[in-house]
Design a protein around this nucleic acid. Sequence first.
RNA 1: ACUUGAACCCGAACCAUCGCCACUGACUUUUGUUGGUGGAGGAAAGUCCGGACAGCAUAGAGCAACCUACCGGUGAAGAGCCGGCUUCCUGUAAAAAGGAAAGAGAAAGUGCCACAGAAAAUUACCGUCCCGAUUCGUCGGGAUAAGGGUGAAAACGCGAGGUAAGAGCUCACGGCUUGUUUAGGUAACUAAGCAGGAGGGUAAACCUUAGGUGCUGUAAUGCCACGUAUAGGAGCGUUCGAGGGUUGCUCGCCCGAUGCUUCAGGGUAGGCAGCAGGAUCCCGAUAGUAAUACCGGGACCAGAUAAAUGAUGGUAUUGGAACAGAAUCCGGCUUACGAGGUUUAAAAUGUU
Length: 129
Amino acid sequence: MTQHLYTYGKKEKLKSRKKIDQLFQEGKTFSVFPLKVWYLFSAEENSTVQAGVGASKRFFKKAVDRNRIKRILREAYRHQKNILLDDSNCKTKAINIFFLYTGKELPSSNLYAEMQKALQKIIAANETA
RNA sequence: ACUUGAACCCGAACCAUCGCCACUGACUUUUGUUGGUGGAGGAAAGUCCGGACAGCAUAGAGCAACCUACCGGUGAAGAGCCGGCUUCCUGUAAAAAGGAAAGAGAAAGUGCCACAGAAAAUUACCGUCCCGAUUCGUCGGGAUAAGGGUGAAAACGCGAGGUAAGAGCUCACGGCUUGUUUAGGUAACUAAGCAGGAGGGUAAACCUUAGGUGCUGUAAUGCCACGUAUAGGAGCGUUCGAGGGUUGCUCGCCCGAUGCUUCAGGGUAGGCAGCAGGAUCCCGAUAGUAAUACCGGGACCAGAUAAAUGAUGGUAUUGGAACAGAAUCCGGCUUACGAGGUUUAAAAUGUU
């Protein structure tokens, strides 16, 4: 799993509208302030972890601010995703994850610590399941 | 010199590492590896105008609604731009100069005009004048609109005549306005003459006049793929017509039959085109006061669909800056904004 270290390319993004709707309807959720996380394990054959990020239009009316948050979240995921990929239980599963920023102000840090916590929670959830 | 305003320019450099999107070369040909090129704005914003493009409609009439409103030019077009005219403001001895204007009509009608003031359009508080009464302090009736006071604005200004006092009541001059003649100008308009006329403002109040306006927007629209069920129940209807279209309404007109509405249930929500070469951008010449036009040469310059430009460290000083992120595309307008650069102004009281 060390071949692609810190990438976040097209294949790793959660893009299909169908999958996202499914995730919001059927997926489980928890919060690590200021993040809210949806996740869903599925038994599909192409086993990849796909993740998406977002920010509420209600709190961030300017597109520039939403772009900024999405970039920070992507950067945080990009650097920390190997926590998930190196875990032997998660490696082979298809996991859909969505990170929503629920804070009301722009983040002051790079959100690495929060992202790490969130990913570890997903691993823990997988083990109990 | 600083500060402030206006106009224009610019909108954050370079290096390393990690990473993103599009196109593309090579190697591998399920997949991937590696290299190259390009990758947000002056407002991409607000969605306020105008188009291109697309679909639908094209049988009209009335009403309603909306838009435009000095002249000429420019442009695909506009509520755009350029030049001029007029009016107003600043300024000046007068000019020059600078700035502003939703700039047709208030002389068709209706309405409204805060506060103050007697009164905001047929008004009279003080005052002035006349008549009557009088306890000589004033009181009552009438005339008037010169003067005072209020206000953003008070019945055109000023002089003379006139009168009890006064008043465009009359007259001269001036200002305004309608028609007309002459001269200049493409025209708006300007100057002069003649004849007539009115008397506050407001049309970003209704309104009137003149001219004009099909509707809907790229989630348009076209094509391909996938998929279910020409299944079932109920209602309406087939020339005595359900329903639909036609601009918002009314009339009228047109289309119209395995059709329309609805209940329950089921399926899809993937790709391609539209979509990045255009009223394009840059440089130069010519014409024009200018907007702009035209000619010559050169350039190809983002294109996604949960939606690409970021992170970390360093280099000279400030520890990183403003407003802000394309989504069909153009032309404008408006609004937001900064460290800086250039020019210009400070005459409506800038500082040293």
